[in-house]
Computed example of a mutant assay.
Amino acid sequence: MTDDGAQNGSLPDRAFTPLEERLDAWAHRRMAALADEAGPWRRGLLEFAVFTAKQAWACIFGAAMLVLLVLSRLIYPDDALLVRSDALVLAAVAVQVLMLVLRLEGGRELWVILLFHVVGTVMEVFKTHMGSWTYEVDGLLRIGGVPLYSGFMYAAVGSYMVRVFRLFDLRFTRYPPIWATALVAAAIYANFFTHHYLPDIRWLLVGAVVLLYARCAMSFRNHRTGPRRRMPILVSFVGVAFFLWVAENVGTWAGAWIYPHQSAQWHLVPLTKFVAWLLLMMISVVLVTFVHRPEAPELEAPEPG
């Protein structure tokens, strides 16, 4: 469907960075040029290409971290004066600074990144202490057994969430109350700690997530004057969690951290970790809603609650 904002060519209220502005303007020009002369398949392919390009850009911070992890395994010398984990910390900081200087990232992303550093690092320190996974033991830039680059990997998830809000002008129908989502997110975070001492309630928490978001639909548009597309928000959660699981496999293959079953030889991360990522992602969703409040599509009045 098309909304008034799309028909009038109005801009989303979430400002683009300069590069995002050029990408969005290019998408608008190409779609306008094909509006009358091209068939639906050609227009559909172009829209899919724009969607893919914007998704890739939303992942830029996480992709940069994965590239650094892989390169550090393949080409970083073992006898270098600076150990690999410390080099990764400095490289991650350099990427973050470069993105801010070049205006490839806005201030809101930075706040989410800092918040995710705290949330992720606290959990990492506890989990490594409990033996859930381990990092290399060398290096000075670390807290306990956790090198500081691990916080950037969590921050990449938050960076992605903020970017997709802006790039696709996300709107939500029947979004659950923020207080309820915050309570579930707090319970999820607590369970990552308490399940070492108390019964693991992750499946109850998955059920709570499904109940909360089952009626919620997400609408997005590939460029500012494009039609809105709708999808159940739970579908997007599953999709993002799957790609996080794939990224985790890349990270463990690169030796950034390993699970106990990978100590002798690398194996795929079990699909049970997919559920963990789905739950952890819900924490990021709630934190990002504190930066970008969920809004209804322009033609729909916000529902109470």
Rank of each mutant, 00 (worst) to 15 (best):
L271E: 00
A53N: 03
Q7Y: 04
A35H: 02
F192H: 06
F290L: 15
I60W: 07
P199C: 08
L114R: 09
P12T: 14
S263W: 02
A64M: 12
A156H: 03
F168K: 02
G305R: 10
V70M: 10
G226W: 08
R202W: 10
L198D: 09
D3A: 13
F274Y: 07
A80Q: 10
G239Q: 11
L88E: 06
E105D: 11
T128Y: 02
S72A: 12
R163F: 04
A80E: 08
L11M: 12
R84A: 13
F220T: 14
W245M: 05
H267D: 03
R221L: 06
G144S: 06
V286A: 11
L198M: 15
F61N: 09
G139E: 05
A264Y: 04
D79G: 06
A87C: 04
L110F: 08
R221N: 10
R22I: 06
V93F: 14
L183R: 08
P40D: 01
R22A: 11
A25T: 07
V269L: 04
R43K: 13
V119M: 11
E109P: 02
H267V: 01
I113M: 12
I283P: 01
L110A: 11
I188A: 14
L74E: 13
R84W: 13
L23M: 13
F152Q: 05
L81C: 07
A186G: 12
M161H: 05
F193Y: 15
F165G: 03
V50D: 08
F168R: 00
W41H: 00
W57I: 03
L23K: 05
Y154I: 08
L204S: 11
H196F: 15
G44M: 05
L82P: 12
A190G: 10
P294A: 07
L98M: 12
L102D: 09
S159A: 13
M65W: 04
Y213E: 11
L88K: 07
V285H: 15
V122L: 13
M65G: 06
G44S: 05
G44W: 04
G44Y: 03
A32G: 00
H292Y: 15
L102F: 14
S284A: 15
F237N: 11
R228D: 12
P177C: 02
R42S: 06
T2M: 11
A27P: 01
Y213N: 15
P260V: 01
R108Q: 15
I201C: 14
H117P: 09
L69I: 05
V240S: 01
T272I: 08
R293I: 11
L211E: 07
V146N: 06
P12S: 14
L100G: 07
